[in-house]
Nucleic acid binder design. Structure first.
Lengths: 361, 361
DNA sequence: CTGAAAGCGCTTACAG
DNA sequence: CTGAAAGCGCTTACAG
């Protein structure tokens, strides 16, 4: 093991920061990679000490740490994530599963998650389930063997097999967007049902009496909003099941136009439409424009989520602003705590929502 | 190494597919993980043979392969990606860097890339640069040490340091969305300049004489579209630099409204506006609606990319449909070839674009 | 077609 | 505060 020539790099000029560190030919590795041992040899200590120093572990002489840090930087040493993962039995990756990226809601969520995680030295590995239980299961089967440090899942609706995979992996996991059932499962979100009830009540207060619920996608959260809608209308004595348009098709602006059309054909016609998501509400608003239908005079329209463009609509859309960025940040923080073995006292964190009244209602 | 009790799992019932395979207590590993050696022992061959059989390498007795496959499946064996990466010096991850996820253009790109890569056994590791060279550099510094099998980058505009990192890593790399400079750099995209010229010419043919170019973000591809715009107007003898509104701010529907306002204040006023992206064009269309400004009679409006909603606008937006899904698919395929060491004969693949004429022009 | 040996680059666990 | 030993779970390269 002593076939290295004496280290010469210490007197070498520092590489320009604009260039990647050159690989040293003095390395014994065929890969040309600078390893922990290379650094250890250059400094004249054991690899273990370098490992400790670089990871900021206690119990290393501060002066030595400084020297090791400097030498490592100068030599362009970068830890090998694969080796680290293999030795420590865990990676720096956090698996983040969302239903869809075309809904900007989840883009906001991911951006916030990434930012928080990256700052803590973790990487977000993003998986998209397309609202498909089988796909989610496959993603878990594929990525769980990578020993992610943590797991961030959207909601609670998944297959028993998926649940079992997560449980068996013992990887710390936080659920986002919804609140748990109080059983102590870590989650960060808000009450989708309460939010649905809130915007429905707003419509009732505005004097509307025949309020339809127009939905596409029909995922778990949409159905929770429907629950809130029902609750609010029942309380007001205005509930009529024939006013629920629950279409399983994926949402889009075009679907919103179709839903508006269908809703207006109901007899007697509704005087207000609660769309389960802003994209279909926007589509409905544009369809109303095309038809010359006055909103909200002829029919009020509301959405959910406050997505980009909703404030630009004609008229601007009344909606529920959901705290997805905040959820991403707090969800990541909670996960980080779990990863570190710290306690999370309220395992379920309610971040609320906000009714944004604009001119469409 | 002979401290295992005799394998009993062969007669054990197959685990229900709805449950993850249980960890065998007979494993010598503290991690409880089923390893290659466990499978080898159960079958009665060497770990090397199991490794070869499971990877589908030639030169293994077909009958043995079958037996190994079955036993591995029954035992719930899953290869450890970290160990594999460490031993083979490369991972199954492909690093995909895009500027922004809030532009659905890149979501479509990523979806297509993921699908193609996943089917080939690779995983897309997504990084978002936010149109920031420093961020891109940092992502490369962070993820390149993971030894990704390949690299998928958006465009060619990056810092010299980023280029150097990519080159030094020797990781196969394909550039997406733009075409190369003909120097043989692998790329899949289309000519942004030609597309910009094409839609400009369309406006000229419609009889417009004062055609403004309204842009936000001003990334490399936007500026290439501007180049095409200029070229087309110069050819028509209609070029006027004062008609170029180049705003560096990030695009949004609200910015589109502002750009419309600014464009209409030009003197003499333009009769057509070419927006560099559909989101700002949509914003402009809505602002025109608010002002009661007739489109296209008073002013024609066109966009770029054909994003969701453009066909729903009032009036529907004339735009350029860009083949991002196709680019994602073909880009991933080209990368897969490079990874396998196969030749890619035209290293630059032009997938074209399509002028979509609707009612806004 | 199959296997024994060595090693990938780290960290864990145990000593001192 | 520091280090020698062993091992994480695979694959490469060399034999046969």
């Amino acid at each position: 093991m002593a076939r290295h020539p004496p280290p010469a790099s210490q007197s070498a000029p520092l590489p320009s920061s604009a260039e990647p560190a050159r690989h040293r030919s003095r390395s014994s590795r065929a890969s040309g990679r600078v390893t922990l041992s290379d650094v250890a040899e250059a400094v004249g200590v054991s690899p273990m000490t370098v490992s400790r120093a670089l990871r900021g572990e206690r119990r290393v002489d501060p002066a030595l740490v400084e020297k090791i840090r400097a030498t490592a930087a100068q030599m362009g040493y970068v830890p090998d994530p694969a080796a680290r993962a293999l030795a420590s039995q865990k990676s720096a990756q956090v698996l983040v599963l969302v239903p869809m990226l075309s809904n900007t809601l989840f883009v906001d969520l991911i951006e916030a998650v990434h930012k928080e995680l990256f700052a803590a030295g973790y990487h977000a590995l993003i998986g998209v389930t397309h609202y498909d239980r089988a796909e989610e299961e496959q993603l878990l089967r594929t990525y769980l063997p990578m020993r992610p440090a943590g797991l961030l899942l959207t909601g609670f609706d998944r297959s028993p097999a998926a649940r079992a995979l997560v449980a068996a992996s013992k990887v710390p996991c936080v659920h986002l967007m919804e609140l748990g059932d109080g059983s102590g499962t870590p989650s960060v979100g808000f009450s989708q049902a309460d939010a649905g009830a809130s915007i429905t009540r707003h419509l009732v207060e505005r004097g509307h009496r025949r309020i339809a619920f127009c939905a596409g996608q029909l995922d778990a959260r949409v159905m929770q909003r429907a629950t809130g809608y029902r609750r609010a209308l029942q309380e007001a004595g205005l509930y009529d099941p024939s006013l629920e348009l629950l279409w399983p098709r994926p949402t889009s602006m075009a679907l919103g136009a179709e839903l508006l059309d269908a809703a207006l054909r109901l007899e007697p016609a509704p005087d207000a439409l609660f769309f389960c998501n802003d994209d279909i509400a926007q589509g409905a608003l544009l369809e109303a424009l095309r038809r010359g239908l006055q909103v909200p005079q002829r029919v009020a329209i509301t959405g959910f989520n406050d997505l980009p463009g909703s404030d630009q609509m004609v008229p601007p859309l009344t909606t529920i602003r959901t705290p997805r960025s905040h959820i991403g940040t707090e969800g990541a923080r909670m996960l980080l705590k779990l990863i570190r073995g710290e306690p999370v006292d309220p395992p379920s964190m309610d971040l609320g929502y906000e009714l944004v009244v604009r001119q469409s209602s």
